[in-house]
Amino acid sequence: MSPLALPQTPPDIAKEIAPTGTLRAVINFGNPILARKDPSSGAPVGVSVDLAQALAKQLNLPLTLVPVESAGKSVETVTQGQADIGFFAIDPVRGKGITFTPPYVLIEGSYLVKKDSPLLNNAQVDQAMHRVVVGKGSAYDLFLTRELKEAQLVRAPTSPLVVPFFMEGTYDVAAGVKQQLESDAKKFDGLRLLPGRFMVIEQAMGQPHSVSKRAQETLANFVANMKSNGFVRDSLVRHQIEGATIAP
């Protein structure tokens, strides 16, 4: 079943999802697994862009993409009514202003250290002597703010800037999307990832809490269909994304 074969959403429900008559989707470039800029055109591409386009077709509405550089800005854009939908890591802090669908992909969060670091595993990170760099407002920031009891968090402006920020200071650990850290470790000498993961992030679509129950159910059903019909899997393959798995 292709996304084009999905049943059209009734106009009244489409109006509840996108009151302006245009579906406004915020796209976060801070998570390279979900979205990035096309190297040649600079246009947004990725799984989240594909999903936004497919949803606009189902709603029979034009689409406007609202690109941002960080997860925090993505949340702000939706909660302040500047976008109708977004793509988020499910988190209770964000859940205060956003209603999430069930997740569509799972992404691992990992730690990165310098090769001469004495740290050998994730359990050794949470010590008072350690400073951990994380992207401000990212899912990793929110999670580690709750979970780390001793180590100090140091916030880089965005997730893609975590490793450059880490390299410029006397920090002990960098935390973020495993794929992003692996990529950055190839660009900078003397880095290694700690084995395993410190968290699994559930990536979902989200809407403002203020939308109707029907609008929430429509988006949740859309995500379920995009997983079951292979759309999400095919999109990950097409964009050559590794490090993400389809959510059950």
Rank of each mutant, 00 (worst) to 15 (best):
S2I: 04
P3Q: 07
L4C: 02
L6R: 06
L6P: 02
L6C: 03
T9Q: 13
D12L: 07
I17S: 05
T20P: 00
V26Y: 04
G30Q: 06
I33N: 13
I33L: 13
P39F: 13
P39G: 06
S40F: 13
G42S: 07
A43G: 00
A43K: 15
V45I: 15
V45D: 05
V47H: 02
S48W: 08
A54F: 08
L55P: 07
L59S: 03
L59T: 04
L61C: 04
A71F: 06
V78K: 02
G81Q: 11
A83F: 09
D84H: 12
F87G: 06
P92F: 10
R94C: 02
G95H: 02
I98E: 05
I98N: 07
T99D: 08
F100V: 01
E108G: 11
L112M: 09
V113E: 09
K115L: 14
L119V: 13
V134P: 01
K136W: 00
S138P: 01
S138K: 00
S138D: 02
A139Y: 05
L144E: 00
T158P: 04
S159I: 03
M167V: 14
T170S: 13
Y171N: 06
A174V: 08
K178P: 06
Q179A: 15
A185C: 07
F188E: 07
R192T: 11
R192I: 11
P195Q: 10
G196I: 12
I201G: 01
A204V: 10
M205K: 02
H209D: 09
A215Y: 05
E217N: 11
L219C: 10
A220D: 13
A220R: 07
N221Q: 15
A224K: 14
M226Q: 15
K227D: 09
V232D: 10
E242G: 04
T245Y: 00
T245S: 13
T245M: 01
